[in-house]
Design a protein around this nucleic acid. Structure first.
Length: 103
DNA sequence: CCCTTGACCAAAC
DNA sequence: GGTTTGGCCAAGG
């Protein structure tokens, strides 16, 4: 029985589970949703996440609309996003602002 | 407590 | 448009 208070990483993961297929969010939005500005820490959390089946970290992109990195590689990330119905041109999300999930 | 590491960001050049 | 620069904050050593 471990009553360890949830780490920042865990909060990121829980939040991310709310993002539906076909939508994306950004590192900054996640940080803001957690009432902080630790964008970089969010990125770190994603990198440490190995539970890809439960946490859709491929739906987290950069604020400028570019896809960003991924544990399996950017190309793989793009591939997955496209399979979920998101258009990507030249490494950028098409209609980015309209694809963003608002918490 | 200090230092380093980031799947980042925004502004500046 | 790209690249550089400074800043941001949590986590781990």
């Amino acid at each position: 029985m471990e009553y360890t208070s949830p780490t920042f990483n865990d909060k990121c993961y829980e939040l991310l589970k709310n993002v539906p297929k076909g939508s994306v969010t950004t590192y900054k939005i996640i940080a803001r949703a957690l009432n902080t500005n630790a964008y970089r820490a969010v990125g770190n959390a994603m990198k440490r996440n190995q539970n890809l089946l439960n946490v859709p970290c491929h739906r987290v992109v950069n604020s400028n609309g570019s896809v960003g990195e991924y544990i399996l590689g950017t190309e793989k990330k793009i591939e997955i996003l496209k399979s979920e119905g998101i258009e990507i041109t030249n490494g950028k999300i098409v209609d980015f602002n309209n694809r963003l999930f608002k918490f």
